[in-house]
Design a protein around this nucleic acid. Sequence first.
DNA 1: GTCTATATTGTGATAGAC
DNA 2: GTCTATCACAATATAGAC
Lengths: 213, 213
Amino acid sequence: MPRRSAPDRQTEQRILDAARNVFIRHGTAGARMQEIAEEAGVNQALLHYYFRSKDRLAEAVFAEAAGRLAPAIAAILGSDERLERKVEQFVHLYIDTARRHPYIPGYVLAELHHHPERLPAIAARLAPGAPKPLAQPILARLGAQLEALAAEGTIRPIAPEHFLANLLALCVIPFAVRPMLTLALGMDEPAFQRFLDERRADLPGFILNALRP
Amino acid sequence: MPRRSAPDRQTEQRILDAARNVFIRHGTAGARMQEIAEEAGVNQALLHYYFRSKDRLAEAVFAEAAGRLAPAIAAILGSDERLERKVEQFVHLYIDTARRHPYIPGYVLAELHHHPERLPAIAARLAPGAPKPLAQPILARLGAQLEALAAEGTIRPIAPEHFLANLLALCVIPFAVRPMLTLALGMDEPAFQRFLDERRADLPGFILNALRP
DNA sequence: GTCTATATTGTGATAGAC
DNA sequence: GTCTATCACAATATAGAC
């Protein structure tokens, strides 16, 4: 039984959930506090009680969405596994997660574009003691692995920045341009799901094949 | 010397240019008619004189931005050139164009996500007599080419939808996640330009290599 | 902690003079 | 065709009762 004047975590979570839905649909600028309040089943004043302003609420939502996969991705790419395993784990993790929340990638890309200034603050909040270029340690480990494989002739030389960009690009693209797939390529929902199945199965081989000498 | 009461195409163009800049920065929802008017050097009422409403102005801007590369891409992919040449032309066209307007890809992705309902209307306006799945003809030609190459053992089998998605993904990613490159990978402006140079040179080989049997 | 009511400012759009 | 002035309403945020 919670005390009467302590913050109600359950209400806070309901607001956050509703805010996530609304911000994902309309973006920070297009979202309306009224709509969030309705979807959370509370009134508008309560949003300000918990989060002070629309801007802070938007920041909380974005931080959660953008940082969701970061730890898992860092763990995969920075591990001691073989490259083949890393690529497969990355592809499966990304596509399986995005499939459950198919509008998050589009939302994150949109916010990244319109509010890039938010990124440093959020990164500092999620990983307080991290080094200046946030991904430096993982990038260094990954780079060393790629370099070793290239030296022994197993793969072509590739900078870890490009490797990472390629990985992310090939996984995120179906979610980022989904309306175009629907319109230009005539994909309905089942076809889109099949498209994801195919990519999940084929991308690891495609990527590793591209690195062959 | 224009007649006094004929639409001034020059003014209309100035408004459109200003609108493009503002919409690209802030998106449809975040853009302010006042800001567009200032940037165009006219007053707010004139925007409505030329474009009736914010929504129509936004649609005009998005149609131009989203459709800009469509004809050239269709020409490249639907041509009779060899696959190697198509890939190289696509990569060079996309990166060279996006480099001159580096915020357009992010803007298009954002609008695609928040206003997918606009796409059909715009597609119909840009290509009035086109078939239902807009890219059907090009996709069929490209698919036949890929199938023929696969049959003779030159490449692995790949559906044209995946081929196209991979091509676009690998080209657009630096522009789509640029703030992340800056923050997480520590890329400043010159480093970003070098990154683009490297991708422009390496992507064709990377993509074709990935298709080897 | 949650509500109703309201202050205050922002914003798209129009009327009408020139 | 372009301007100034203004309307009408939307939207964030706060005050204060319960």
